[in-house]
Design a protein around this nucleic acid. Structure first.
Lengths: 178, 178
DNA sequence: GTATTGTTTCAAAAACTTGTGAAATATTCA
DNA sequence: TGAATATTTCACAAGTTTTTGAAACAATAC
């Protein structure tokens, strides 16, 4: 999969996949390491301790600690109930596997606020233009910003529909510019 | 909008909006400056030269040059026909405004390949496991990777449907893990 | 209670990204 | 063609993000 002599295929395979999911997640605006950790947990038969994760991904305890805290905030990993059978006292972690749950969570908590903020920004900008002179330039600017506002509204509606019904249509977007 | 004395409201408003669209675009995985430039062009009544853009956004000619090249590659800005009426010899630029066109372009050229690459990676990983021992750990790993493969497939199907019909449903995602 | 191991915090190092300035190249006008 | 201006390229500087290592803190076993 990678280096000269792949002596442990399982390990290699897990890292290979984790690395790629890491890229995917980075692409979606998360830190690469979050995707790597989620994947290692998802691919593991049993919950792993922070130390085990660190060993598999060659990361320091502090890096793991920070990353796990963030993953937990997103509800993407969970603390596993500790099977206290003689086990040392280590917390262990498992991956959430409800993908739509995780995705919709992020859409709700991160993308939706962002679209709303966009509408807000454009409204503020339009207001700031309230007593600007009525020349062609201002008229054009106002018109363009009204278009952007409609666009942001269409985007928000699309997201909200997707979140509540699980379906979305790009029709409104296609009509832009209105 | 911003600083102590906003002496030119138009300028301020444009920068304010451009700044925010910049953040949006950054969020979607593009460089912030690409969003800022597109916005300044979109809000402008007429095409602008690189120098004018640079002046408005306080960017060096080299930064503008690089950014415009990238925007052009994405089909998000166009070289305006030069109204050669005594005009100096400067290229000028206008913003594409077909938003769905731009979005679907990016989905097709960037996100779709990424999902396909994901399927490919997981398939390769599964193959690499072909002659691994048949213990519980391997079985679990294989099973988990098959799930991820289905997930990636569902994602790809969703994207492809969205691109060809303008509609998408998260149903398949909701069924995960299969 | 104390020793041991695990976890968190945080300042600073390392890695990475983005923007600049200078030089090279290209274009326009006369 | 040559002068003037515009554009591109690229090494490096500035800024940002991510990871680390040390120390503080917490939890458990004995």
């Amino acid at each position: 999969m990678a280096h000269p002599a792949p002596q442990d295929p399982l390990k290699d395979v897990r890292l290979f996949v984790a690395e790629h999911v890491g890229s995917l997640m980075e692409f979606w605006g998360f830190k690469r390491v979050l995707g790597r950790i989620w994947t290692v947990l998802y691919l593991s038969e049993r919950p792993l301790t922070a130390a085990e994760i660190g060993r598999r991904l060659a990361l320091s305890p502090s890096a793991i600690s920070v990353a796990l805290a963030e993953l937990k905030r997103w509800g993407v990993v969970h603390e596993a109930v500790v099977l206290s059978t003689r086990t040392r006292r280590a917390q262990s972690w498992r991956a959430e596997s409800d993908v739509w749950g995780m995705v919709s969570n992020v859409l709700r908590q991160r993308e939706l606020p962002m679209v709303r903020r966009t509408e807000e920004v454009i409204r503020t900008a339009l207001e700031a233009l309230a007593d600007a002179p009525q020349d062609a330039e201002t008229r054009h600017l106002r018109q363009a910003m009204r278009s952007l506002l409609l666009l942001a509204g269409a985007g928000r509606a699309m997201l909200e529909t997707l979140l509540s019904t699980g379906r979305a249509s790009a029709e409104a977007l296609k009509k832009f510019p209105a």
